[in-house]
Structures are given as structure tokens and as C-alpha cells.
């Protein structure tokens, strides 16, 4: 108790500031909407078996690269193919008679998995390289920065496309490709933050007291990079899913039949004028997913950016 009070007193202005931030955030309708959308997605993914009306079987196969992979297989109902939305099939059925609603529900798991995998891995790489480059400077900085320059010289989707083409098509490879494309973003943000914080007096003070570099990076510099990074990561969760969907649409991602939103649109394309629902609903799922993260990120940026907040 005593400790807590002391802490409260010491951090009074910071607490006030945080409260203010939270308040601003709470009053922003769009940010709250984003948060709700994200929560809905997470819940859908967690409780997919309870929400969906039909369920896939999981079969283990040997893929063209000779690896064992587990894939979703849905039960084929040719007698029910391309049925419009009804109470039985909320979002209609596709050309194999699969229930689109159930596929979308299960698809949320894959989307979240892709988004998390790509963003978190890219973030780790980015933080390590960015911190090294910014903190130590010199040739290390030069090297890391020039490499990011190179990656930034090729549009992300195209670079990811080339990587996936080289690795061979599969959803895992799409993820690897996107990690490779994404890390430079975080590297640059972290580096810029490190350069900014490094010169500040308390870091200088810590250094003159003989605190180790690693400790300075972790205790002083990284926490300060939190705000811009947080916004970026939130937005990227959506952007990653969007890019992955694009790659799937081209035909580079999951194998046919998987409940992957981009792929569903791609296979529905042939039936667009007969069965609009086949394309429409998976697309809406992507929109809502990405929108959720974008709204949240936008709201966060507005409240965390000192220039915009008042």
C-alpha cells in the first residue's frame, strides 16, 4: 500500500496523462468500433466449432515439396451447390456445396494466425536489428539501413510474390515471404526511436553510471518506442491479412478447398454473376477484419500523437 501510494505520487503526471489518453480513446466512437470488431473476430476464431454449422475434417497429406501437412477438407454436397443465402446456409453455398458461413468462421483462425505470425516474427527481427543499428551506429547502422533501403525499393506485394514463387506455393511460404517483406518497417521505426532517445539525458546518465548497453536498450530505449510501434503493429495486422489475401487470390497461398478468405474470393470469381454471395461474404469478412485493426490503429495514433490529441 505504502509502496503503491509512493509510486502513484511519483508518477502523478504520467498517470494523469494516461487517464486523459484513455478518456480520449473511450470517447472516440470509431476506435471503440474497431476494438469491438477485433474482439468479435477473436471470439469467432476461438469458438469456431460452436458457431459454424458445418465442420471440416483435417487430413494429413504429403505436399508437392514432400512435406507432411494437415489440410482442411469439407464435405462435398453437389446437390446443394451454389445455393443462395437461406436460413440453412446463412451465406449460401459454393460450387462444391460447402457452407460459406462455416468456411468464413473457420477462416478467421487462419487469418489471425497469419497476421500474428507475420507481425510478431517481423517485429522481433525488426526490433533486434533496429536497436543494434540505432544504438551502436557506425558500420552496423550503415549496413542495416542500406539493406532496408533495398527492401523498400520493391513494392511489398510484388516482392512477396517473387519470394513465394521461389519457395513454392503454400500458405506457410506466403507467411515467410511476408515476414521477409515486413521486417524493415519495424527496423526503421525502432532505429529512429533509438536515435532520438539515445541522446536524452537520462540515457546519458544511465550510461555514465556504467549501466550495460543491453540494459539501457531494454530498460530505457524500447519502452519509449512503444507508442509509434504499437500503432504500426495494429495497422499491420490488417495490412498483412490484406496482402496475404492478395497472394492467395493470385493462387500463391493455401491449396484449393481451404477455408481461406482470399482463396474463397478467387474461386468464387468464376461464379460472380451467378452466385454473388460466394465472393461477397468472404470479402466482407476481410473488410471487417482489416477495418477493425485500422480503426483501432487510427484511434491509437490520434490519442498517442501529441500534435493531434488536443
Amino acid at each position: 500500500m505504502g509502496f503503491f501510494d509512493e509510486w502513484k505520487k511519483r508518477n502523478e503526471s504520467r498517470i494523469k496523462e494516461t487517464k486523459f489518453t484513455l478518456n480520449l480513446f473511450r470517447h472516440s466512437f470509431l476506435s471503440m468500433l474497431g476494438l469491438v470488431l477485433i474482439l468479435l473476430m477473436i471470439l469467432t476464431a476461438l469458438f469456431a466449432p460452436f458457431i459454424a454449422t458445418e465442420h471440416p475434417n483435417y487430413v494429413t497429406l504429403i505436399n508437392p515439396q514432400g512435406k507432411r501437412v494437415t489440410e482442411q477438407r469439407w464435405e462435398i454436397h453437389f446437390d446443394e451447390k451454389l445455393e443462395p443465402p437461406s436460413s440453412e446456409h446463412l451465406f449460401g453455398t459454393n460450387d462444391y456445396g460447402y457452407d460459406i458461413f462455416s468456411m468464413i468462421v473457420y477462416g478467421s483462425r487462419l487469418s489471425i494466425k497469419i497476421a500474428l505470425m507475420v507481425v510478431v516474427t517481423a517485429l522481433i527481427i525488426g526490433v533486434v536489428l533496429g536497436a543494434l543499428a540505432g544504438y551502436f551506429g557506425g558500420w552496423m547502422d550503415e549496413l542495416v539501413m542500406r539493406v532496408t533501403d533495398i527492401f523498400f525499393s520493391i513494392p511489398g506485394l510484388i516482392l512477396a510474390m517473387a519470394f513465394t514463387a521461389a519457395l513454392g506455393r503454400s500458405i506457410e511460404h506466403v507467411m515467410y515471404a511476408m515476414i521477409i517483406v515486413w521486417w524493415p518497417v519495424y527496423t526503421r521505426i525502432i532505429r529512429a526511436q533509438v536515435l532520438k532517445t539515445r541522446e536524452e539525458t537520462y540515457v546519458e546518465a544511465a550510461r555514465s553510471l556504467g549501466t550495460t548497453d543491453l540494459k539501457i536498450i531494454f530498460k530505457h530505449i524500447l519502452p519509449n518506442s512503444f507508442a509509434p510501434l504499437f500503432v504500426q503493429v495494429t495497422m499491420d495486422m490488417g495490412a498483412v491479412v490484406l496482402t496475404a489475401a492478395g497472394l492467395s487470390f493470385i493462387g500463391l497461398g493455401a491449396s484449393p478447398g481451404t477455408a481461406e478468405w482470399g482463396l474463397m474470393i478467387s474461386s468464387g470469381r468464376a461464379y460472380i454473376f451467378q452466385a454473388w454471395w460466394y465472393v461477397f461474404f468472404p470479402g466482407m469478412a476481410i473488410v471487417l477484419f482489416v477495418l477493425g485493426f485500422n480503426l483501432l490503429g487510427d484511434g491509437l495514433r490520434d490519442v498517442l500523437d501529441p500534435k493531434l490529441r488536443r
Binding site: 470509431l30 460472380i272 468472404p282 470479402g283 476481410i286 485500422n294
Partner: peptide
């Protein structure tokens, strides 16, 4: 405007294309 803007960056471009085709060409 802001809602349109934020939806604009949240939409898969290929889906938008298909929807526009559906609406204005079909």
C-alpha cells in the same frame, strides 16, 4: 469522408473490383 477513407485502405482491391463489376457491368 474518414469512414470512406479508412474503409478504402481496409478493402481487398480484388474484391472491390469484383463488386464494381457486379454492380456496374452486370
Amino acid at each position: 469522408t474518414r469512414l470512406i477513407a479508412i474503409t478504402g485502405v481496409s478493402m481487398p482491391i480484388f474484391w472491390l473490383a469484383l463488386m464494381l463489376q457486379l454492380a456496374f457491368a452486370y
